[in-house]
């Protein structure tokens, strides 16, 4: 180990290393956000389900709730429909 490697160790972190660290953090975050985001088809799916139900009972827009629950092994499509009270 000579004089040169001594100076090298003293040098502060180079910008390429910084770039790599920043990218790794950013990309990990962006991937996590993508996984959390609801699938694009959800609004359309909800509208169509609403349409089918309305053929039989009258429900309000807000009475149909569609949600995707992300799991580790599989995702769950949760469908919640509040039917009007029977008269």
């Amino acid at each position: 180990m000579g004089l040169f490697s001594f100076f090298k160790q003293e040098k502060k972190k180079d910008t390429a290393t910084l770039a790599k660290e920043r990218l790794q953090i950013l990309i990990a975050h962006e991937h996590a956000d993508n996984r959390k985001r609801a699938p694009d088809y959800l609004p359309k799916l909800r509208d169509e389900i609403l349409g089918v139900i309305r053929k039989y009972v009258h429900v309000n827009e807000n009475d149909v709730n569609v949600k995707v629950e992300k799991g580790t092994d599989y995702d769950v499509l949760e469908l919640n429909i509040t039917l009007p009270e029977a008269k």
Partner: peptide, 16 residues
């Protein structure tokens, strides 16, 4: 520039 530490190296890009 990669050697000089101011450009991302190919291995780092592949890893990312």
């Amino acid at each position: 520039r990669v050697e000089g530490g101011d450009m991302l190296g190919m291995d780092d890009i592949v890893e990312i």
